[in-house]
Design a protein around this nucleic acid. Structure first.
Lengths: 199, 199
DNA sequence: GTTTTTGTATGATTTGAATCATATCTTACT
DNA sequence: AGTAAGATATGATTCAAATCATACAAAAAC
């Protein structure tokens, strides 16, 4: 992804190494850098009314909080959920670069992709059965109905807005019903949809 | 909002008048125009697996399917849910205009705003109690805890991912518990949060 | 290597939202 | 004005997910 960035920008990036659980930025502060996560994992979170932490997004690779490029302040918190390596681009330089060589087009396409992803997520969370959400996720996030889970099933449960108990149960039920296959690999679990429906 | 668009573009717009229930575009087709809804209401929808229609978004004013500007095909359907007036901008002209006078910055900010809205929506739909979703909606979509409902409560229920029965009941319960006020006006219902929490 | 923590898994119970049913009120249509 | 259609409202019932509890395996920490 970074290969689409102009060299001028790449030269200005600073590499940031963070351990698990270290904070990256907090809600309300003014963005100075735009971060690109190279490896590891970052979570975007927010506090609920009772102080519970709500995870908005788990990211393994890519730009974080794209909207911060033109925002006066962050609208969520970010912390490393795993040891991570990031590239930090000065916001000012990044914004200047947008006007050069049609770089803005790259950025707009990236934002558009994020919008599509979020719309899918919204549609998914509006489904009220666990199996519907699982299947929808495989259909929209997976490639040809196959999805490699990033991280644990428990973390995936949070993303799907389900309790982990329900997710375990429903996954096994769907497997018994031959609606999907669960392939456990060393690194990660892989899910494959046993397709009936077209599309 | 259109006042931020350059004149060159405004001159190229075509006005489109559509009656309620008329389709605007369908998923899979190639976008030729970028639509701005002036008045009325448009719904972005998608089909579920069993053919049920799922409403992704109800819009009363603003650009529709912003991602279509750089998309090969629409990723959802759109139809007028009320008699509507729209402005249609040729995609090609719009994209060319992005490079002029830093217009891309306006567009990026608009996309960023949409991303924030969608993130809020995702966070809201991940809440599993009806009252939590209602309160979260007032906090994030409302101004200072006050929200004027666009359309019927029934339509709002769909947006919140709740059955309309549950929404009616929960609204009245929250009112009894003095957590919010319901003000019925001629045109629309207005909801006001009886604040306890800071922020 | 041992301990501790975290993820996986499943059973029992509770809870709250969906659903079905029905009634009234409002709005749109003719 | 009169009728039809849709929104509002509430009760009864069902159902599925959350929660609580517990057990075991795997991974991390020491």
């Amino acid at each position: 992804m970074l290969d689409q960035l102009p060299n001028t920008l790449l030269q200005q990036r600073k590499t940031v190494q963070l351990e698990a659980n270290q904070p990256l930025f907090i809600q309300g502060t003014k963005p100075k850098f735009l971060y690109f996560l190279e490896e590891g994992e970052v979570q975007l979170t927010r506090c609920g009314q009772q102080g519970e932490t709500c995870t908005l997004q788990r990211i393994q690779q890519g730009f974080l909080a794209e909207a911060s490029l033109f925002a006066e302040h962050y609208h969520c918190d970010a912390h490393c959920s795993k040891k991570s390596r990031l590239s930090a681009f000065p916001i000012k330089a990044f914004r200047q670069q947008l006007g050069q060589d049609g770089f803005y087009e790259v950025w707009i396409q990236l934002l558009s992709k994020e919008i599509k992803r979020l719309r899918n997520q919204g549609q998914r969370l509006a489904l009220n059965s666990a199996s519907d959400r699982i299947i929808h996720c495989l259909q929209t996030e997976g490639e040809n109905g196959v999805l490699r889970l990033q991280g644990s099933i428990k973390e995936w449960a949070a993303e799907l807005g389900l309790s982990h108990e329900t997710l375990y149960r429903t996954l096994h039920r769907l497997q018994k019903q031959k609606q999907l296959e669960i392939v456990k690999q060393k690194t990660a679990t892989q899910l494959k949809l046993t397709m009936h429906c077209p599309t």
